[in-house]
Amino acid sequence: MRYEQTGCRCVMCHDYGDRSERDPAEVNTVSQVQAHGWSVLMVPEDDHGPGWAYTIGLWHSYRIPELAMFGLDVEVLRTCLNDIGRRAVAGQSVEAGQTLDGVIERWPLQLRDVDLRWCRAFFARAIAFYRRPPIPFLQVLWPDRNGRLTWDADSEAVVRVRQPQLWLPPALHPKGVWTQDL
């Protein structure tokens, strides 16, 4: 599945009628995108599983894929995503397979394409903002204490449990907290 690169239909570029009845979260997102170029939506950890965060607006403002990160404290995730967003806007490439250094001290991060079939499950606010799926997303992955990532057979369980493998099609994802509602 690929995303379209033409015809922005987002809530900022298209008139969808009465704006006075907009959802307060949508109003906040639009305000953040207008002021900063993107917003970071945070989903805190709860009894169902780890928290995650993702950007909304990088694609709209800069044609940079949206970013998503899972499994750490949401404030840490927000800081990381904003740092990567600023780097990308300043000209540093962000693409699947890339390793990013210096975002989290001592730990390189890895970028992977998100299989677009995951967007509805995890990025509903982005879909509402853009008014259509699919939207290009990159997952930002963090390593265990030994620098091993989730696909490494020797990685600590924490990196596999707290981070989904969104580059896999949902039907091939290992069963667990990330697939329980699918």
Rank of each mutant, 00 (worst) to 15 (best):
M1E: 00
R2Y: 03
E4N: 10
Q5L: 05
C8L: 13
H14Q: 13
H14Y: 10
H14G: 00
D15A: 13
S20I: 10
E21C: 00
P24F: 04
P24W: 04
P24N: 05
E26C: 08
E26A: 05
V27G: 02
T29H: 02
Q32V: 12
V33P: 01
Q34L: 15
A35L: 09
G37A: 14
G37V: 13
G37N: 09
S39M: 12
V40H: 01
M42L: 02
P44I: 06
D46Y: 11
D47L: 12
G49D: 04
Y54E: 01
W59G: 05
S61F: 07
Y62N: 03
R63C: 08
R63I: 03
E66T: 01
L67S: 09
A68C: 15
A68Q: 15
M69L: 08
F70T: 11
G71K: 07
L72S: 05
D73N: 02
L77V: 10
L77I: 14
C80G: 07
D83G: 03
I84C: 03
R86Q: 13
R87G: 10
R87C: 04
A90M: 14
G91A: 07
Q92A: 10
Q92G: 02
E95G: 05
A96D: 15
A96T: 08
G97E: 04
G97T: 14
T99I: 08
I104H: 02
I104M: 13
I104G: 03
E105A: 15
E105T: 13
W107D: 15
L109K: 08
D113C: 01
V114S: 09
V114E: 08
L116F: 11
L116W: 01
R117S: 03
C119N: 14
F122V: 01
A124P: 03
R125F: 05
R125K: 02
A126Q: 10
A126V: 09
A126S: 14
I127A: 00
R131H: 08
R132T: 04
R132W: 06
P133M: 13
P133E: 15
P134C: 12
P134A: 13
P134L: 07
P134G: 10
I135W: 02
Q139T: 06
V140C: 00
L141D: 06
D144R: 04
D144L: 09
D144G: 06
L149S: 06
W151I: 00
D152K: 09
A153E: 13
A153K: 12
A153R: 12
S155E: 07
V158C: 11
V159G: 01
R160V: 03
V161D: 05
R162E: 02
Q163H: 05
Q163W: 14
Q165V: 12
Q165C: 12
W167P: 06
W167I: 13
A171W: 01
L172K: 14
L172R: 15
L172W: 05
H173R: 05
H173Q: 04
P174R: 08
P174N: 07
G176P: 10
W178Q: 09
D181P: 03
L182P: 12
